[in-house]
Design a protein around this nucleic acid. Structure first.
Length: 661
RNA sequence: GGCGCUGUAGCUCAAUUGGAUAGAGCACCUGACUACGGAUCAGGAGGUUUAAGGUUCGACUCCUUACAGCGUCACCA
């Protein structure tokens, strides 16, 4: 019997290897083109995208001045750094390869050409090989007019393409922990970002509801539970089941300790020990074998597993009952985090999938069979080794199931892209899986992507459940919300609200703090989660961004329903105003890049920067008491646009904003 | 050992995918606001980007070699 009793992965399934691009050449290539198109034609009605205008101008300038045929991809155009004057910067060094002039001279000539030929470019300056272009205020003015009343600004029209996101994917033997929180937040956020990019998104998870782990919890409850239920004990139901899992481990350790004193164990140690090895070390390494060979508890747990596989009614009933408790507990945590799923896949239904595909693959020569009956695939030419896909007894392994599950999902939804949000320990697994799907000729194989994320460490060191330092998801959420309470009480600004309303506000703030802290870090990087710092509501935090929105709200409420027609008479923009509009302008591009790079942290950092610019503006300028009616109307429009974009940005991170705070 | 990831201010993170003087936040100093819209704003200090080579107009970014931390290399999931 091939059963192993470690549980190294508390949640399912990270990346690297060849660069992400090599995984999906067809999609990534067409993607940016589509979005560029969309930005031009859906988002900014009435006028052309300024970047395209400049690019066209440069292409024409190169042709006119130097008889060069170039395209927009041949030269870099970036936003101007804030220490220089200008809005967009053209790096002219690439031109020196074709034009025998100094970079400065080329920049001067191109700059003069652009100012003369392109209406929206007002001025230019040249520093070394950098051509800084100043966009006319009228352009920004008109742009703001177009977007300020549109709460959907930044999102793309539906493109009819479908993407599936798998995230969370827990085991049912214990509650969710900090690692799941990062997984859930990334998965949810990426799914929202893809929706904003125009995709039809299906959210799924695969739940590991079978196997030896859940049998351990079942056995412990049978033997020691005395009929207790989550209701009778008052414990949150997934924690209730998790407690029995822990209890099983405790009883097993006791049993093991006792056994180690037995003559049988002593003899074994004396015979098999390596030089210099202590009894403690030896038995630590021997634990799994003891479980399989000698342990009474181990034997009973395996019997439960066999009974489950044989569809024994009593066992199935117990299994359903305990899993039901776990699901109820998970659901409440998902609610607290504000996430949901369109479909759940259960391993109890999928663990037999994939075998037929392997049979077909044997015929087509993708796989091969050894004399002992086991089936393999040789991926050495892809630097991935040989990998087993069926055991010699014909049963399937982890990856077989994933092969079958991918196929079933494609039948279910027909998504051209499938994103697996899984920790980076499983990079190799997904490389192998995707390579297999490619060789099987699956039509969606190019659209498979592993969104791999790094482990979350605590300041005290690596998070490990064995040492009991694992941070429970529910505890963590409560802690952050409590901290938000303390902050709010000190401030006293919510005192006139009902307790329920206060609680709702505080919950939104606390959850925002937690989410923003985690999601602002690039997924791939291992990160340190400091509970104390996360609940510090200063600095690069969710509440800071929320506060910018709340400020807009209170100001706009006060303004009532003002006549904004004077805004178009406001002609000379303050630098602070123009900077904010230029930032607003970038939003669709940020969404596009975040989707392309599967990276919510870009949206988080963008939102923070915009909020910061707005806070500064707010401090430096009057809005409702502006000098002129035109300035007032214009600034109200600006605030509305900022509020819309910040709301959307936070929404893409799964963060809600209260009306006040 | 093979394959892979990571290494940036005291700490937590950025850097428009090869562009200008490497930027933010926290913490630490200094300042603004009788609180109006106060969970706000401004300034200072803090760096040989782990090290050494290489590629070029230009390197945190690409290549090579070290060093350090981590992951993975199951007929487990």
């Amino acid at each position: 019997m091939a059963l192993v009793f470690q549980e190294r992965y508390s949640c399912r399934r990270r990346f690297h290897g060849p660069k992400p691009r090599t995984f999906e050449p067809p999609n990534l290539r067409t993607f940016p083109f589509f979005l560029t198109f969309a930005i031009q034609f859906f988002n900014i009605p009435g006028q052309m995208n300024i970047v395209s205008i400049i690019q066209q101008g440069v292409v024409q300038g190169a042709a006119h001045l130097y008889q060069l045929e170039i395209s927009a991809e041949d030269f870099p155009l970036s936003t101007t750094r804030k220490e220089f004057e200008g809005d967009y910067t053209l790096v002219v060094f690439p031109f020196t390869k074709h034009v025998k002039k100094s970079p400065e001279a080329i920049a001067q000539e191109l700059g003069a050409y652009l100012v003369e030929q392109v209406a929206s470019i007002k001025a230019f300056n040249v520093i070394k090989g950098f051509l800084n272009l100043v966009v006319d205020d009228a352009y920004w003015q008109a742009f703001l007019q177009d977007i300020y009343h549109n709460p959907q600004y930044g999102t793309q029209a539906p493109n009819g393409r479908k993407v599936m996101v798998e995230y969370c994917s827990p085991n049912t033997n214990k509650p969710l922990h900090l690692g799941h929180i990062r997984n859930i937040l990334l998965g949810w956020s990426v799914s929202k970002i893809y929706e904003a990019a125009g995709y039809d998104v299906v959210r799924v998870q695969i739940i590991n509801d079978r196997g030896i782990a859940i049998c351990k919890s079942m056995l412990a409850w049978q033997k020691f539970g005395e009929g207790a239920t989550p209701e009778s004990s008052g414990i949150k139901s997934d924690h209730f089941v998790g407690d029995y899992y822990v209890l099983f481990e405790k009883k097993f350790q006791e049993e093991y300790k006792t056994w180690q004193q037995s003559p049988e164990a002593v003899a074994l140690f004396e015979e098999k020990k390596k030089a210099e090895q202590s009894a403690e070390e030896y038995f630590k390494a021997y634990k799994d074998q003891y479980f399989n060979l000698y342990s009474t508890l181990g034997k009973q747990a395996r019997e439960l597993l066999l009974a489950w596989e044989a569809n024994d009614p009593a066992t199935i009933e117990l299994w359903k009952k305990m899993n039901g408790w776990v699901y109820a507990g998970f659901d409440s945590t998902f609610d607290k985090l504000g996430v949901r799923f369109d479909k759940l896949y259960y391993e109890s239904n999928t663990y037999l999938l994939g075998r037929e595909t392997v049979d077909q693959g044997l015929n087509s020569g993708v796989f091969y069979r050894l004399e002992d009956g086991s089936v393999w695939i040789d991926l050495e030419d892809a630097k991935l080794d040989k990998k087993l896909v069926l055991r010699k007894d014909g049963t399937s392994v982890y990856i077989t199931q994933d092969i079958g599950t991918a196929q079933v999902r494609y039948q279910d939804f027909g998504a051209e892209k499938m994103i697996y949000v899984v920790a980076d320990e499983q990079n190799y697994h997904f490389q192998v899986l995707f390579e297999i799907m490619k060789r099987l000729g699956e039509p969606y194989a190019g659209g498979l992507y592993h969104l791999s994320y790094g482990m979350v460490d605590l300041p005290s060191g690596k998070m490990k459940s064995r040492e009991g330092t694992v941070v429970d998801a529910d505890d963590l959420i409560d802690e952050v919300v409590n901290e938000a309470w303390e902050n709010s009480k000190e401030r006293g600004t919510l005192a006139d609200l009902s307790p329920e309303a206060q609680q709702e506000v505080i919950r939104k703030i606390g959850v925002a703090a937690l989410k923003f802290f985690i999601v602002k870090v690039h997924p791939k990087k291992r990160m340190i989660f400091d509970p104390k710092e996360s609940v510090d509501l200063q600095g690069q935090t969710g509440p800071y961004v929320q506060n910018a929105i709340v400020r807009c709200n209170s100001m706009l409420n006060k303004a009532g329903n003002p006549d904004l027609s004077a805004a178009s008479d406001y002609h000379t923009l303050e630098t602070a105003e123009k900077d904010i509009i230029a930032q607003l302008y970038q939003f669709p591009e940020i969404i596009k890049q975040a989707a392309e790079g599967y990276d919510p942290s870009m949206v988080a950092m963008y939102s923070y920067e915009l909020a910061k610019a707005f806070h500064r503006f707010w401090h430096d300028y009057r809005i409702l008491q502006a000098e002129t009616e035109a300035a007032k109307a214009f600034r109200i429009q600006l605030s509305m646009a900022v509020r819309n974009v910040l709301r959307m940005g936070l929404d893409l991170l799964g963060i809600e904003t209260p009306e006040r705070m």
